[in-house]
Every structure is written in structure tokens, then in C-alpha cells.
């Protein structure tokens, strides 16, 4: 996040936004884990722009439409992830960055965050938007690590995002309601699912996307050495992969005229009532 506040006028006239967007197996396929590598099988599986990331792209597009600026999509993935980047470009993003390198395979979340941070640092952005978590592996760890590596505040679980002056203001979803939080730009924001309905690419968008630039970086291009990323750099190790334990069967209350009482008794036994 090279752009420094002091170099900007007080009124932020435009925001340049990097969106971290992942390419995931399409929702119609059941995600499979390779028993030997213990990683999600991605080769030969149809893939799509993560719907959660599409919402992040949409939110970024809405902000630049309101304030001016540009959206850059940043993806770490296999070479064919350019398909997903192109989709984001067709939606209206201006440029794409793909970090792709066999050396990155098997990266843990921190390795992923390092790669994304390194690529983002090559540009100048006022804001980074991520999905809260990806819809294939759901770790939700990358955005926090990324914010730390970039040295910016993280505003998470956004249900609404605004830029006011030099600040980002976020309506943040919590278990019990909303918080309104704000931070000076530059900032990292994670958006909740359902924050918006992503637009679909228009025909003009698709035609225009052909002319937009997609920069492709290797790990070395962004200054990362093999020991920092990939399998070898990973500090998280997957030991075993298993199915979640089946849940114990619930209690069925049969209503024989006294259903209400039975339910009340049951809840009382759990000390809920």
C-alpha cells in the first residue's frame, strides 16, 4: 500500500481498489480432497470466480463508480485462473494480476497472504477488498494476515461500505446486530456474503475485457523465495483429512395433545428456559 495519505488531498476524489479474488471449483461439483497431497483437487475440475469474490468485485466497482478510480483483481492460482480474472474484467475491473507458480502449490494461508501482499505492494491502492472467506475451503484466515502484512487496518464482515473523506466507513455485521466502524485509508475490508448482487458481465464488458491487461507474476517476480511459500514454506500442515463426526440424532417430540408442555420440559432440562 505504497500510496501515503500525505500525498493525497484531504478530499479523496477517487479510490484505487485491489480485490483479492479466488478461483474455486464450480458450486455444482462436490469438492474432493486428494488423499496423498491432502489438498483440494483442482486439476480437471470446472472452476469459476468465487461467488463471494464476485461480491467483493461488485462492491469495489460500485465504489469506483461513485468516487472514480480503478479496480484491480488479484488472484493467486493455476494458469487457467485467467478465465476468472477475465470475468472480473468483463464485469468492469480495469486490470488483472495473476500470481501463478508451481512453487506456490501447497501454500498455507500465510503463504497465500504473503504472495497476495507482495503482488499488491507492486501497485498503489487505497483499499483492498476480500471476501470474508472463500466458498471452497472457508478458512477465513487470509484477509487478516494480509492486512497485517500490508500494515493496514482490517474492517471485517462489511454489509455496507462507504468512503467518506479520507476514511472508509463500514456497517459491520455482528451476531447481534450492526457496528459502524471506520478507518483511515488505506484499509482492507472483508465483505459479507449477500452484501450485494454481483452484476453479470455485459457483452460490451466481455468485448472490452480482451483489451485489458493481465499481469502474470511468478513467486520470484514478487520477491518471494521458495522457503517462504508453497509446501516447503507452509507452517500449517494437514495431518489427516476426515469427515466431520455424524451428529447425534435429535430429540423428536411427538405431539399427543401435550406437545407444548413436552417442549417446555425439554428446554427446561437444557436450562434454556
Amino acid at each position: 500500500m505504497a500510496r501515503h495519505l500525505l500525498t493525497r488531498p484531504v478530499e479523496w476524489l477517487f479510490v484505487n481498489i485491489a480485490v483479492c479474488a479466488k478461483c474455486v471449483p464450480i458450486s455444482a461439483v462436490t469438492i474432493e480432497i486428494d488423499p496423498t497431497t491432502k489438498r483440494v483437487k483442482r486439476e480437471g475440475v470446472s472452476h469459476e470466480l468465487d461467488p463471494a469474490a464476485a461480491s467483493a468485485v461488485e462492491e469495489a466497482l460500485r465504489l469506483v463508480e461513485a468516487h472514480g478510480g480503478e479496480v484491480t483483481v488479484v488472484t493467486m492460482g493455476m494458469p487457467n485462473a485467467v478465465d476468472e480474472i477475465r470475468k472480473a474484467l468483463a464485469m468492469g475491473a480495469e486490470r488483472g494480476v495473476l500470481i501463478s507458480d508451481p512453487a506456490l502449490a501447497g501454500s498455507d494461508t500465510l503463504g497465500t497472504a504473503k504472495a497476495l501482499a507482495a503482488a499488491i505492494k507492486k501497485g498503489q491502492y487505497d483499499m483492498v477488498i476480500c471476501a470474508t472467506e472463500s466458498t471452497d475451503t472457508y478458512s477465513g484466515l487470509v484477509p487478516g494476515q494480509l492486512a497485517e502484512l500490508l500494515g493496514v487496518a482490517a474492517l471485517t464482515f462489511a454489509k455496507k461500505v462507504k468512503v467518506e473523506g479520507s476514511k472508509a466507513v463500514v456497517r459491520r455485521q455482528t451476531d447481534f446486530g450492526y457496528q459502524v466502524v471506520e478507518a483511515e485509508l488505506p484499509v482492507l475490508i472483508t465483505v459479507s456474503s449477500g452484501i450485494n448482487e454481483p452484476r453479470y458481465p455485459s457483452l460490451k464488458g466481455i468485448m472490452g475485457a480482451k483489451r485489458k491487461e493481465i499481469a502474470t507474476y511468478s513467486a520470484a517476480d514478487v520477491g518471494l523465495s521458495p522457503d517462504q511459500v508453497g509446501e516447503s514454506g507452509a507452517r500449517e500442515k494437514v495431518l489427516t483429512v476426515g469427515k466431520p463426526p455424524t451428529r447425534a440424532q435429535g430429540t423428536v417430540v411427538t405431539d399427543e395433545g401435550d406437545g407444548g408442555v413436552k417442549i417446555a420440559d425439554f428446554l427446561a432440562s437444557l436450562k434454556v428456559l
Binding site: 470475468k87 458481465p201 455485459s202 475485457a209
Partner: peptide, 12 residues
């Protein structure tokens, strides 16, 4: 690739 994008976008 463009034709595939068109198909996907219309489907969406």
C-alpha cells in the same frame, strides 16, 4: 475463450 465467456455470461 470469448465465446465461452459469452455462453457463461448469458447463462448467468
Amino acid at each position: 475463450a470469448e465465446q465461452r465467456d459469452i455462453r457463461e455470461a448469458v447463462a448467468e
